[in-house]
Design a protein around this nucleic acid. Sequence first.
DNA 1: GCAATATTTGCCCATTTGGTTTAATATCAA
DNA 2: TTGATATTAAACCAAATGGGCAAATATTGC
Lengths: 132, 132
Amino acid sequence: MINARPAVEDRPAVSVEDRLADDLLDRIFHALANRTRRSLLARLARGPAMVTQLAAPFPMSLPSVSKHLRVLESAGLIARSIDGRIHQCCLTTEPLREVEFWLAHYRAFWDQRLEALADYVESDRDGGPMTT
Amino acid sequence: MINARPAVEDRPAVSVEDRLADDLLDRIFHALANRTRRSLLARLARGPAMVTQLAAPFPMSLPSVSKHLRVLESAGLIARSIDGRIHQCCLTTEPLREVEFWLAHYRAFWDQRLEALADYVESDRDGGPMTT
DNA sequence: GCAATATTTGCCCATTTGGTTTAATATCAA
DNA sequence: TTGATATTAAACCAAATGGGCAAATATTGC
């Protein structure tokens, strides 16, 4: 074939809003893709805490935890209120809702897919459906 | 500064199951933390496709897309069935359910938080429940 | 003022990531 | 067989990540 791949112009246009949403999802998912940070969120789900308190259970230096907190903060997953030397951190609800919203896109697929799977199991038994 | 931080033994024990779940969540969230990969998932939500088809809309080389697909696959987000030269990819439902499950942990916090906010707004109790 | 506390910043390092290009492999089709 | 197609593998590179440590910056309290 002459054109194995479509030209760049043929790609779907991406709106500014989409790009902003993508940036946010990038930051949110990246922030969640680390168990230390997820652990910090789990701790904060039990209530606000200052940085030193948050860092205490982790076998790493304070600056490292501080950096993790900044990643969480820049993803909007936590907020901090500074009172003197004390930085009090607390969970924020909005970004996790963002994730929920993103997931909702696929929930429709799941349901449809489970139905299709049920159909498939009954109809086609000869060829292996999917080699893992 | 005798014991500024608790000893390693004081940290909560982490079970093997937890570590496996953490590994999986690491892979899932990392896989989702890239817009190209999310875009691939969005495409696959509309139905299975072969690698070349999947790569076509993206302004990057085929090997790059191939790598992205492998990341998605190793996170269990997609599965592939190989038929001759054709690798057919399709969405998998399980990992997104895993994310849902993880999110459910925090949903309780949201509700409690929204309830607290509602209480705060409606009634005249003194003192906000949680500093933002 | 001075020391202790809470936190961040800067620099260093090894590893990973996300992309490239150029083979290599496997399959289909003429 | 020969050549095109579908896909991965290998080697490479720049940039980001996650960790360390030492120093800087505020702030608190004596």
